[in-house]
Design a protein around this nucleic acid. Structure first.
Lengths: 143, 143
DNA sequence: ACTTTTTTCAGGAATGGTTATTAATGCAAG
DNA sequence: CTTGCATTAATAACCATTCCTGAAAAAAGT
């Protein structure tokens, strides 16, 4: 699992032409260790623990590169700061608009959906992402 | 068509408890007349033509209310300013990340998808929106 | 191993979309 | 009329993100 991921990382960097620097590696590690979906600033704080020299701007740039080459996924929920997720297995997340908790939604296949999109548009699809928001059971009970 | 829309507008305002003010009406009109998917600022400029007194903040607030009661839809593409669309018939848009052009994708049904989401999560789903980006045929040819 | 060239990084300042604040306005009910 | 409450205008503040600079590191060439 880790080996495959490792191979995938190297492969995607090689094909993109970007170099796998220690900073970009550190951002990936932070996303792997972080439970949940950190914002850029949370990633920054995480990375900083091990390497206090990194700057916030570097994290932004690293995240941007990692998203571009498809190693991570950006979740743009309506709440502002963009949140990031390791792009391992395709899955969908739902986010509670009240407490912010994020949960996965099983049983939704993205493949056929992406395929249908490609069939119905002449565009070259580079990114398809489902943004789902709702109210978690806890917050439903509280209200 | 217009009558039905008109009825829908009044109905959604009535149920929400918000009042249908002239400013909110003007924002709706701007979205109806505007070809494409304007940003908040573009809506503001459009509204300002007829009523120069409106403030940008008012437009933001109106858009927020209209989105909350389901009359309009916010498109959060990766490019920053949020873009808005009249929420008439459910459809999906794809946006070219190079030139910014937006096109509709026919043949994609959201209903069964939304249903599957509801079946697979205990969350009360309030918002489900598909963000799709790609490269338009023109930009593909240019590159 | 050295030099050159290119890419990346750190630090901090600047940008710009969005929100918050506050006082004024308008509308609706009593 | 006037009292109360939602909405608005105007402006200031916020804050996530980007831009910019010189420095450092890495890659490529000698």
């Amino acid at each position: 699992m880790v080996g495959a991921l490792e191979h995938d990382i190297r492969e995607k960097f090689r094909r993109s032409g970007y170099t796998l620097t220690s900073q970009r590696r550190a951002v990936l590690d932070a996303l792997k260790d972080f439970k949940g979906h950190p914002s850029a600033e949370e990633v920054y704080l995480f990375v900083k623990k091990r390497n206090p020299k990194v700057a916030l701007g570097t994290v932004y740039q690293a995240l941007s590169v990692l998203e571009e080459i498809g190693l991570i996924e950006a979740k743009r929920w309506s709440e502002t700061p963009v949140r990031y997720d390791l792009n391992t297995n395709p899955h969908h997340d739902i986010r509670c608009t009240k407490c912010g908790e994020v949960a996965e939604i099983p049983g939704i296949e993205l493949e056929d959906f992406a395929l249908r999109i490609r069939e119905n548009t002449p565009y070259e699809v580079t990114n398809a992402c489902l943004v789902i928001e709702g109210i978690c059971p806890g917050c439903q009970a509280a209200s």
